[in-house]
Design a protein around this nucleic acid. Sequence first.
DNA 1: GCCCTAACCTGATTGC
DNA 2: TGCAATCAGGTTAGGG
Length: 277
Amino acid sequence: MPELPEVETVRRGLEKLIIGTTVTAVNVPYPKVITGDSQAFVTGVMQATFTKIDRRGKYLLLRLSNQHTIVSHLRMEGQYSVEPIGTTPYKHTEIIFELADDRALFYNDTRRFGRMVLATTGHESLVSPSLAKLGPEPTEADLTLPYMINAFSKSKKPIKTFLLDQNQIAGIGNIYADEVLWQSKIHPETPTNQLSKLQLAILRTNIIAEIARAIKHHGTTVHSFSNVFGEVGKFQNELEAYGRVGEPCLRCGTPMVKIKVGQRGTTFCPFCQVKFD
DNA sequence: GCCCTAACCTGATTGC
DNA sequence: TGCAATCAGGTTAGGG
């Protein structure tokens, strides 16, 4: 499931592969992938050239030469691939951008959860309001400790749920939330406003380092993630909490347990991650 | 305004 | 063996 490091990996791949290429035709086998009028979408990207690929949180922003931007969210299993023109679409190919250099950009999505919408560049929030509400990126520069102390003091939600809220911090998903809470020795059900400043400082350091480390490993492949080159990520070999239910905690040996927090599967160590510490 | 739940969707896994 | 039920998960819409 793509979280920030996976989306960043896709962004870097797309940047290498499609910048400077022009869209000559668009086929949409699954129109529901497009939010709004799919015909207007097609018209809006025709004959435009990809100029830049940006990312904000888990959103990809494909910049076009005609002042349009494709806002693309991969959700669970969306992925892009570049194929020779004429390649038969896959079972789950939802949109095909034919390019002037005899290649085609496919968007494939097994669960059909991903969405894309066409925006006027600079006004993306008009068609994707959630984009405007995203919290800071989990980086040293953007995610400051004063911001965290302020924002985290205002919520009684379980910290696990809070970390998944894109309006608080952009880009963290279920996998990295479990990872950073384990690293920080924080129980996932701890009310957010009960965390001490020291705990927040530790959590902040771990979030920033973990996301950077995952990007370096090209993301995590749990179900089906692959980059535009069809390569899987390598970070799943580095996971210390997520998916390790029943296995010994890497710190203390206690079997890891799985619970539901805010409807999400949550794996943690019942010994290391003490509640209300 | 906050919180919780259902819905979206399909492949994989589990249960009978 | 085969079918049905359940689970996974990011985001949004709707209800309390």
